[in-house]
Each structure stands twice: as structure tokens, then as C-alpha cells.
């Protein structure tokens, strides 16, 4: 009980004692006045309650405006997040292309090493089997030397290209940071929306909606939610389903 309530109780008690005294001593007129006084107190406390509620509502509204980052979110953070996510698409695409550029440069080099090595190995076998004609050994020796020189320079080139592939993976760090910020923003938006629902909507419906199963229709890209039962998680599952359909 706060001081105001206690004060009111004391006053009421005094008034009531006074009323009883009046009634006992037969002072009807005074007793009537005392009754009026009591009902006034009741009205006063009713007004007091209404006043309190009004103050609470006012505080809630101004609190809401204080916490309310929605304007900022809508005006700045969400457009910024769109830019950030576009940056993620661009950066990952660039990294994928850079990696494939390097790999496509590596492939003919390693293919060439393989085919030359296969040829030399074949002729090397002839040498062991004494199938080489007299002049051919000198030629083979020359080809081996050329090959070894080219393998050395090819390897340095492959090293350089593989380093490029490695460096191209720096997108993981950059996009990771950007995505983490967007996740924080999404959490912020969620908190503000929940707040908004608590103020102006129905919390009950919100809780009901949280438990509701969402119907997923049409193409939706990779599904991350592993608990979903309408989605197959591996190629083996897909193959099983198809073979059950007669594939």
C-alpha cells in the first residue's frame, strides 16, 4: 500500500468512526453528512485510479517512442542491409569466378604435364627393354631435359595460380562480417515488431502464430530448416523417392 492509499484508509476510518458516533448519539443530520463524506472519498479514489491508468498509458506511449527505432530501421538500416546483402552476392560471385579463372588456367598445365610424362614414360620403357635405336637415346635424353625444365616452370605457375585460389577465399571473412550485421538488424526488427504487437495488437495471436505450421509453396531455394519433413536432405533420398516412382 503506498502512502496515498494509507492516507485515504486513515481518512476513511476516521470518517466511519465519526459516522458510528453520530448514529449512536442520534445526530441524524450529522450522520447524513458523514455518509456523503464517505462517498466522496470513494469517488476521489476512483478518480485517483483513473489518473494512475492515464499516467501509465502516457508513460507506455512515451517509452515506446523512446525505444522506437522503427523509423531509423526503416529509413536507414533496412536499405543499408539490402546494400550489404547485394555486396555479399557480388563478392561471392567474384570469388567464385576468380577461383574458376585460376582453376581453368591450371587444368591445361596439369593436363600437359600428364600427357608429356605419359609419352616419356612409354619411351623410357623402350630404353629399358632395349628397343631404342642408337640415335634415339640422345633424342630421348633431350626430351627428358626439356620436360624437367618445363615441369619446374609449370610448377611455379601452378603454385601462383593455387595461391590465387587460396586468396580468393577471403570473401568468407568479408561476407561473414556483413551477414552477421544483417542478422543483428533482423533481430532488432523482430524485437521492435514484437514490442509493437504487445502495445497495439494481440499477444495471444502472436503466440498462436509462433506455433503455427507454415505452408511452403513453390520454389524456395535451399531449405535450411532441418526439421522440415516435406524436404529431402540428400541425393540418396531423392534417388530413393524417384525409384519408388518407377525411375
Amino acid at each position: 500500500m503506498d502512502t496515498q492509499d494509507k492516507l485515504m484508509a486513515d481518512v476513511t476510518l476516521d470518517q466511519a468512526r465519526h459516522l458510528i458516533k453520530c448514529l449512536e448519539s442520534g445526530k441524524v443530520e450529522e450522520a447524513r453528512e458523514a455518509i456523503d463524506g464517505l462517498s466522496q472519498i470513494r469517488e476521489a479514489s476512483l478518480f485517483c485510479e483513473v489518473g494512475k491508468l492515464t499516467r501509465q498509458l502516457h508513460e507506455a506511449l512515451s517509452n515506446f517512442q523512446l525505444d522506437n527505432k522503427l523509423t531509423g530501421l526503416a529509413a536507414q538500416d533496412i536499405p543499408d542491409a539490402q546494400e550489404r546483402l547485394n555486396y555479399v552476392i557480388e563478392t561471392t560471385e567474384n570469388a567464385a569466378n576468380k577461383t574458376m579463372d585460376s582453376v581453368e588456367k591450371c587444368l591445361p598445365i596439369s593436363e600437359n604435364i600428364k600427357s608429356t610424362a605419359d609419352e616419356l614414360l612409354n619411351d623410357w620403357g623402350k630404353l629399358y627393354r632395349r628397343e631404342l635405336k642408337p640415335g634415339e637415346f640422345r633424342k630421348l635424353a633431350g626430351r627428358v631435359e626439356t620436360f624437367l625444365t618445363s615441369v619446374s616452370s609449370d610448377s611455379s605457375q601452378l603454385n601462383g595460380l593455387l595461391t590465387e585460389v587460396m586468396v580468393a577465399q577471403d570473401y568468407q571473412d568479408l561476407t561473414g562480417q556483413v551477414i552477421r550485421r544483417v542478422i543483428t538488424l533482423v533481430q532488432d526488427v523482430e524485437e521492435n515488431l514484437v514490442h509493437l504487437i504487445k502495445m497495439f495488437g494481440s499477444t495471444e495471436e502472436y503466440q498462436k502464430a509462433q506455433k503455427q505450421d507454415v505452408k511452403h509453396e513453390g520454389a524456395e531455394g535451399p531449405v535450411i530448416d532441418k526439421t522440415r519433413e516435406d524436404v529431402l536432405t540428400s541425393q540418396d533420398d531423392v534417388d530413393d523417392l524417384l525409384s519408388s516412382l518407377g525411375f
Binding site: 531455394g221 536432405t233 523417392l241
Partner: peptide, 25 residues
Amino acid sequence: TAEAKREQIVEAAQAGVNGYIVKPF
């Protein structure tokens, strides 16, 4: 494709697809 809902694979099969690979592959 990354689409891996059971009903989608059935739909593709019914539409006459010859093979179905889910990404990543």
C-alpha cells in the same frame, strides 16, 4: 536444383524429367 521438397520431385517426375540432382552436388 536446390529444390528438394518431396512434392516438387514428384511434380518433376510426373512432368517427365529424366534425372534429378539436388544442389550442392
